[in-house]
Design a protein around this nucleic acid. Structure first.
Lengths: 220, 220
DNA sequence: GACGCCGGAATCGTATACGATTCGTCGAGG
DNA sequence: CCTCGACGAATCGTATACGATTCCGGCGTC
């Protein structure tokens, strides 16, 4: 692991490095995060590492056990579903907010990302790329919603979901194909501008909840 | 300030003490949190205090400025409205989840809290008590929703809103009276069980958004 | 052979120490 | 009297040190 050493304080650099490693799966659920090891790896003292880990703890990415140490958080099936349910809620609302504000440029960008996603669905699955495209697609729309806290919460939720590795390991190719179609529908609705907000929200929520249905039963 | 010294690690105790002080307004928005001062106050070294503050930072209750120090977060009018808008979203959903699960006991408890709130609305306003009753009312309902992350997020949102002191200083007595009536309506709807979830959600959302309307203009 | 106890290694939690940065103030020069 | 610079106090950020707790493996006993 390496520190991006651009005038950041060390705890900040450690924080970013650890977070990135957890969200991208280089540390998986249940993995131990030993202070002294990480400190040696990154060539800092344990103090800033502890600060970084406290922040990660507050974000529910890691869990501390007193006098034992920290581990990357693990989600059981139920917890995972509850998280995605919240994602569905926030995402649905973000889309409604975006409905009135979205620009043609943003619509085009989202369309491109979804087209790229469709290509991925056709070929052999590169999970990392799929997850990245998928998130970027949704994030383009969130950005139009123009509510900083909403975006922040959505990012945090996505990070926790990514960190759980459930999507990376259990997302069926078949579901991806459906998701791409649902994205197209969503963009159509946003372009048309004649869909009622309530209907748009209901529909978008369902899109997220479909991920639960597609994966339910695969966990545990 | 004092530490509740029950087998907690020191950073945990400091964290709770600081958080409580911020949410209850003993530290107000913009107040400085000087490490060495707090450490001396609580009779610990600065190290655990820093850990506690990093957690508070991650929860957006305080903001650090490098080499300068930490302050209790300040919300401008727009940020405050965005937060309450998110509260409306989550709260509305929590109520819908609670609709199917709520017990007569919970309904009674909520009714008692709202009755107490009505008493407060009549007499001279004790803001702290009003805020406490109000939160407890909503929390009883959240608990029935049975989604741990939803509850966690709602608590975190309420803490940020309380910490901003906007409600404590700007909530009009008139609005409190209306809110009490809306609470009664909500309980009626929950008891009746014949309201559609969509309608219940719309209605509950509006209840939270009314707080924005009541306060808009008073800020800044 | 199974069980429990003991001791050392690993790791955490906190205190202390100290260099680095910022901010305010005071004095000199204009 | 105002402006600018320099110095000192306050505060932060990080390293190091060390006691406390937990974990684990080996040894003795039954």
């Amino acid at each position: 692991m390496q520190l991006s050493s651009e005038g950041l304080s060390k705890h900040e650099a450690v924080y970013r490095a650890l977070r990135e490693a957890i969200v991208n799966g280089r540390y998986g659920p249940g993995d131990r995060l030993v202070l002294s090891v990480i400190a040696r790896d990154l060539d800092v003292s344990p103090v800033p590492v502890r600060e970084a880990m406290r922040r990660l703890e507050a974000e529910s990415l890691v869990t501390f056990e007193r006098n034992v140490g920290a581990r990357v958080n693990t989600l059981d099936g139920e917890a995972w579903e509850q998280l995605v349910e919240m994602l569905a809620l926030l995402d649905g609302y973000a889309v409604v907010r975006a409905q009135r504000r979205i620009t043609p440029a943003a619509l085009d960008e989202a369309q491109e990302l979804n087209d790229a996603l469709r290509d991925q669905a056709a070929g052999p699955t590169d999970h990392e790329r799929v997850m990245s495209l998928h998130r970027r697609f949704h994030r383009v729309i969130y950005a139009c919603g123009d509510n900083e806290y909403l975006i922040e919460s959505l990012d945090s939720l996505w990070d926790r979901i990514d960190a759980s590795r459930v999507l990376a390991s259990e997302y069926p190719a078949k579901r991806l194909a459906s998701a791409v179609d649902e994205h197209d529908d969503l963009l159509r609705q946003l372009r048309a501008r004649d869909v009622s907000p309530a209907e748009l929200e209901r529909c978008t929520r369902q899109h997220s909840l479909n991920a639960i249905l597609a994966i339910r039963g695969r966990l545990r």
